[in-house]
Simulated assay, not measured.
Amino acid sequence: MDKIDIISQIEEELTWRFEELVFFKNQLSLIEKEEEQNRYRKSLVVMLYSYYEGFCKSAFQIYIQTINLEQVTRADVNLSIRTSSLHEVFLAVGNDSKRDSRFKKELPEDSKLHKYSRQATFVNEFTNFLTETVNIPESIVDTESNLKAVVLKKILYRLGFPFEELDISENTINKLLGYRNAISHGSRKRGITEPDYEGLESNVKELMNNIRKIINEAIRCDSYLETTR
């Protein structure tokens, strides 16, 4: 797939969310009383969070699909992508219910032995793993139903982005989650004032734009490769 097409997909994921947010925000002009406008903004905050989480998940999954479609081997990609592509293999290694058939009868409950057997199988097949085509599962992008700053960092780390060097606006994420949770728990019954909402929306949009730029740059530069082409 052409890089321009892929980047366009990510741009569209951001654009439709921003446009829809504008549409719903414009409905404020139909509400005369300020206190009712404040109450209406509670719904905008909830939507703002859903757009933030939804965009991040969609954009990262597009990035994963892009890598998978390249049909490169694990030996060709960086350590993070290589590790993420082995996610299912690692789950099998750590699966305590998976037991070596040779010991099922004599030592069925020897968990250490069966664990060692799974590890030995992994080591024996490791060379083959490196020659296999990369296929990162979508489950790597786990927003954990609450896309906190630390959760976003985990996703960035798994996909090989230099998360420690990136400004992911932790204060903005914490503020957004704080508002959303307060609304859900009923502790902001009076709603959100215009200045508070506008400041929050501006910062969240900037955060989403930064995520877009990070992913687009990685696609342009083939950053997932061990040595860029």
Rank of each mutant, 00 (worst) to 15 (best):
Glu164Asp: 10
Gly199Ala: 11
Ile183Tyr: 00
Ala182Thr: 09
Glu194Val: 11
Lys175Pro: 03
Thr193Cys: 13
Asn171Cys: 03
Ser169Met: 12
Ser187Val: 12
Gly186Asn: 10
Ile173Pro: 02
Lys175Tyr: 03
Asn174Cys: 07
Asn174Glu: 13
Ile183Gln: 00
Asn171Gly: 14
Gly199Gln: 09
Thr193Gly: 15
Ile168Glu: 11
Thr193Val: 08
Ile168Cys: 06
Ile168Gln: 12
Gly199Thr: 04
Arg188Phe: 00
Pro195Asp: 13
Asp196Ala: 15
Leu166Arg: 07
Glu170Cys: 02
Leu176Phe: 04
Tyr197Thr: 10
Glu194Asp: 14
Ile168Thr: 11
Asp167Ile: 03
Glu165Ala: 11
Arg190Pro: 01
Ser184Ile: 14
Ala182Met: 02
Arg180Trp: 08
Glu198Ser: 14
Thr172His: 04
Gly178Gln: 00
Gly191Thr: 03
Lys189Leu: 15
Leu166Val: 05
Ser169Asp: 15
Pro195Trp: 07
Ile173Glu: 05
Thr172Met: 02
Leu166Lys: 11
Pro195Met: 12
Tyr179Lys: 07
Gly186Tyr: 04
Asn181Arg: 15
Asp196Val: 04
Asp196Glu: 15
Pro195Leu: 14
Ile183Trp: 00
Tyr179Ser: 03
Asp196Gly: 14
Tyr179Cys: 05
Gly199Leu: 02
Gly191Tyr: 01
Asn181Tyr: 10
Arg180Thr: 08
Lys175Leu: 12
Leu166Ile: 06
Arg190His: 10
His185Gly: 01
Leu177Asn: 05
Ile173Asn: 01
Tyr179Phe: 15
Gly199Met: 07
Glu198Lys: 09
Glu170Trp: 01
Asn174Ser: 15
Ala182Gln: 09
Gly178Arg: 08
Gly199Pro: 03
Thr172Asp: 05
Gly178Asp: 00
Arg190Asn: 14
Gly178Met: 06
Asn181Met: 12
Thr172Cys: 06
Ser187Tyr: 07
Gly186Trp: 04
Asn174His: 03
Ser184Leu: 14
Ile183His: 01
Glu170Ser: 13
Asn171Phe: 04
Ile192Glu: 02
Arg190Gln: 13
Glu164Asn: 14
Asn174Arg: 12
